[in-house]
Nucleic acid binder design. Structure first.
Lengths: 336, 336
DNA sequence: CACTCAATTGTGAGCGCTAACAATGCTGCC
DNA sequence: GGCAGCATTGTTAGCGCTCACAATTGAGTG
């Protein structure tokens, strides 16, 4: 810990103190096999005494690796992406990687390419993309970053790894729950159709209905926000075409609940509502929301598993799917 | 763009193509003054032709700067911290810095010191701390990172810069609004008292009440979660001591609203409720929530202003305060 | 006892860049 | 015309590390 020279200690200083060459110290730090036990202990003692820490810049200059993962994200203020980031960060740091982030303010091909370049300037060892728009994959296909890329929320492709929650399965869970309760007219308040999840949930809803021999003609599209859920809710309260609604996310469901409450439509007596995500607040809506839970942190962790496989192995990049889970609360019941 | 050798181009390659020395190229990249117009243009053309990008590792090896800001955060899944991060990221990237993050899973002196070390390994040029616990500042005082540190949510101290929203002022805004409407018994559902904001809002509430000649004896402490708001709401619904409640954040207010609804306590007719934060959903609660808005992104941006001042100037580190704003909706009215 | 072979340790070069200094060319001025 | 003084460009060294290879040691073998 004592630092007489005012300069940070380097390999050479440790070597001198331990009475070995700098190369031997390097071997100790990097866990190379051929170092005798005694030497290793002497070196480790010297490292501890000087409080030596390896200079990352020098290391990455020669190895051409930065021990850094770049996370390219949009919508970071949202529950899902934020928790995915948390999962990625945890797994990355556990694996000895730094995590660099860049938030996309607008999602466009240009912005994505720009940010990838930003990361390449930093010589990241891999890029995790948390941008749930469909066009992301297209933009990614265009750039050849030369490092592994894993896209969250997609199955990826030959060049890009993927980690996703099975959205169609989640939609199916929600619809089946409603069908089981006796509903026959089940509508869907979808997310924007340029979002991967927006499309997947709508498809899942549609497929599950058709599998049950029911019509899938009651579809409205929102923008994920509580505000759009509110607007749609006002409209739907007037029509009353469906006895149950599968809503694309919990926030829209919140707005919808608010609109129904204002309009005197009772949930679940008049209309049943199922959300998607299971945010921490969803159990405290009025009424508490039946919804589909996604484990975002797990998603982030899996994402890093794939990434590490891609970095270390170098072989073709993988894919993983996380299963969603239905959480039944009080916003659903049998139709009147 | 053509890359014949398979290796990334470096300074030397650009120099050769432009017919100058590598040092001149370096000067062009770094915007040094004494380069003739013609040379500069020739070099820039060569850079464009080769698609040259500076090697960050080599640069930071010699300059001892990484152009990276470390963000040490906890509770990143929450609305406030997430948006603060967004503001920091934007300002940092605009200023040409990379942003490295580390999330704290548990807040403790040890964990904070550990993470600071993690950042020092990376040779960050500055550290932004988004950890709203009171003990954070204490832990930070202990470590001498050798780089500027800015703590969000505090005024900092001699060694640590600060950027905060004026919490006491926000609490005052809320209380004054209730007093103006005629309330005389105004309770507070506080956040945890080991959080800076939890304490500051409670103090602000207390001070504003006493300034109005009212009692500040109705205080309950929650943990920020909707669940704790719900539990407290059930208890309060039975007591009915206050005609108005200032709740520490919007999530607890949501839980409280839920409990009141279940218990048949009408808001605002029976009890008025004010929240804090103004999350995007708060306008869609039942009823829409009167609350105090904090501009977290602005907070993050200001934070980086101070940071940049500390890095470039090197002089004593600054402080900034962002003003909160009252947003009146439908959860408050005159007492019955 | 000389020789091979493996285990361990050391030596030298160089990753790509910037800082410090040296060299060059050009202007103006006495 | 010669020389100071500035603008511009080049040269050299070295940041701290890892890699490739060389050197040394010691054990095992015929």
């Amino acid at each position: 810990m004592t630092n007489s020279s005012g300069r940070l200690p380097r390999l050479e200083d440790v070597a001198e103190l331990a009475g070995v060459s700098h190369q031997t110290v390097s071997r100790v730090i990097n866990d190379h096999p051929n170092v005798s036990k005694g030497t290793r202990e002497r070196v480790e003692a010297a490292i501890a005494e000087l409080g030596y820490r390896r200079n990352t810049a020098a290391r990455s200059l020669v190895t051409r690796r930065s021990q850094t993962i770049g996370v390219l994200a949009s919508e970071l203020a949202q529950y899902g992406p934020a928790n995915t980031l948390l999962g990625v960060e945890q797994a990355a740091r556990d694996a000895g990687y730094f995590v660099s982030i860049a938030a996309l303010r607008t999602v466009s091909r240009e912005a994505i390419l720009d940010t990838v370049r930003h990361f390449l300037d930093q010589a990241v060892d891999g890029i995790v993309v948390i941008v749930p728009h469909s066009e992301t994959l297209l933009a990614l296909a265009e750039v050849k970053p030369g490092v592994p890329v894993v896209a969250v929320g997609s199955l990826g492709n030959a060049a890009v790894g993927g980690a996703m929650v099975d959205q169609r399965r989640g939609a199916e869970l929600a619809v089946r729950h409603l069908v089981d309760q006796g509903h026959r007219r089940i509508g869907h308040v979808a997310g924007p159709q340029d979002w991967i999840d927006g499309v997947a949930r709508a498809e899942g809803w549609s497929a599950a209905l058709r599998a049950a021999g029911l019509d899938d003609d009651l579809l409205v599209v929102g923008d994920w926000s509580a505000g759009s859920g509110y607007d749609i809710g006002r409209k739907l309260a007037g029509e009353r075409a469906a006895t149950a609604l599968f809503v694309g996310n919990d926030q829209m469901a919140l707005g919808l609940l608010r609109a129904f409450n204002e309009a005197g439509v009772r949930v679940p007596q008049d209309v049943s509502v199922v959300g998607f995500d299971d945010q921490p607040e969803s159990g405290y809506f009025t009424p508490p929301l039946t919804t589909v839970r996604q484990d975002f942190e797990e998603l982030g962790r899996r994402c890093m598993d794939i990434m590490l496989g891609g970095i270390e192995g170098g072989q073709s990049i993988g894919t993983t799917v996380v299963e969603p889970e239905l959480v039944v609360r009080q916003s659903t019941s049998a139709p009147a």
